[in-house]
């Protein structure tokens, strides 16, 4: 093999490597309203290629400081988000808001741990992190291809009981702790200045909603969110921004359909296994990752709704 050819290939590979490295550290962000920056995730299952970086994450800038909303799906994405913030504003990060316990929203936490940075979450978030951490650590090693430790889970130092206001300097965020819905520790963020609701995983668009809390509870919380006077909403999975409350229509239709069909199956004395085969399938074409999550949603809903009639 001629040495020149090897050199050329070598340089090409170096270029490729640089390109990849640059793409990873350069987190794509969109300013969806003044001072609100969102990185849009992808509709994929977490794996070793996307490293779990699948959710919408971002930050809101005030006149005094910055609030991060969901830190990323991997420690590396957390660092990339931190670097991206510094590109957009000289202001320091003062809050990291974790909207719930799922890995794609909290694995970047460690990158932001510093004096002067307060971690905010639902009052049940610390317990959820504690219970899930060992399972999540094993799962990250197996499915995401990296090693986590207990230190990657930074529990909130300010738990939100019902609601809380955070002042970023001439910009106040209103945080609401929700009842069991997507998980049992969902938090939403409302920015009155731009009438934007950061709904996180209380709102799925495109990606099938995943029930890891309570189906009936989630429907209740959607009603509550529809009363928020927002014009825009940021889903946890879906486009970076959408019109509110129209954005919730598809999710509400799916969750209502799921509840109706599961209740009917229970009334007809069908088994969980039978329900998993049929419930929801008429809505299959409206969603991405339907086959990956629908059956599990049915089993979760079935086990809960069996107890409903008393």
């Amino acid at each position: 093999m001629p040495p020149r050819f090897i050199r050329t290939v070598g340089w090409a590979l170096c270029g490729l490597w640089w390109g990849l490295a640059a793409a990873q550290s350069d987190l794509e962000l969109r300013e969806i309203a003044p001072g609100i920056f969102v990185h849009q995730g992808r509709h994929e299952l977490p794996d070793t290629h996307n490293r779990g970086e699948i959710a919408n994450i971002g930050f809101i800038v005030g006149e005094r400081c910055v609030a991060v909303i969901d830190s990323g799906g991997s420690p590396e994405q957390g660092r990339a988000l931190k670097a991206a913030i510094a590109v957009h504003t000289p202001l320091p990060v003062c809050y990291v808001i974790n909207t719930h316990v799922h890995p794609d929203h909290i694995y970047g936490n460690r990158a932001f741990k510093a004096p002067g940075v307060s971690f905010i979450g639902h009052h049940k978030l610390a317990q959820a992190m504690a219970l899930r951490a060992p399972y999540y650590i094993d799962k990250a090693a197996r499915d995401l291809g990296y090693t986590l430790t207990a230190e990657d889970f930074v529990p909130p130092d300010q738990p939100v009981e019902e609601s809380m206001e955070l002042d970023l300097g001439n910009r106040t965020l209103r945080l609401t702790a929700h009842g069991p819905a997507h998980t049992d520790n969902d938090l939403s963020v409302y920015d009155a200045k731009t009438a934007t609701l950061w709904a996180a995983d209380l709102l799925f668009m495109g990606h099938l909603p995943v029930v890891d809390g309570s189906l009936t509870g989630w429907l209740k919380e959607i009603d509550r969110l529809k009363a928020v006077p927002a014009r825009l909403a940021i889903p946890g999975h879906g486009p970076a921004v959408a019109d509110w409350p129209q954005a919730a229509a598809a999710e509400e239709r799916y969750l209502n359909g799921l509840a109706t069909e599961v209740r009917a199956a229970i009334r007809q004395h069908r088994t969980m296994e039978q329900a998993m085969e049929t419930v929801g399938t008429s809505m299959r074409d409206e969603w991405r990752l339907f086959d990956e999550f629908n059956k599990r949603n049915v089993s979760t809903a079935f086990a809960a709704l069996e107890w409903e009639d008393d």
Binding site: L131, P180, D184, D212, D310
Partner: peptide, 28 residues
């Protein structure tokens, strides 16, 4: 399948503890 025994407790443990011991039969 994996993780079934170490998987996090049910999402709403408080509700589960509150109805502990409740039982019912269902017949066709």
């Amino acid at each position: 399948a994996s993780g079934g025994c170490s998987a996090p407790l049910g999402a709403d443990l408080d509700a589960a503890m509150a109805r502990l011991g409740k039982m019912k039969f269902r017949m066709d």
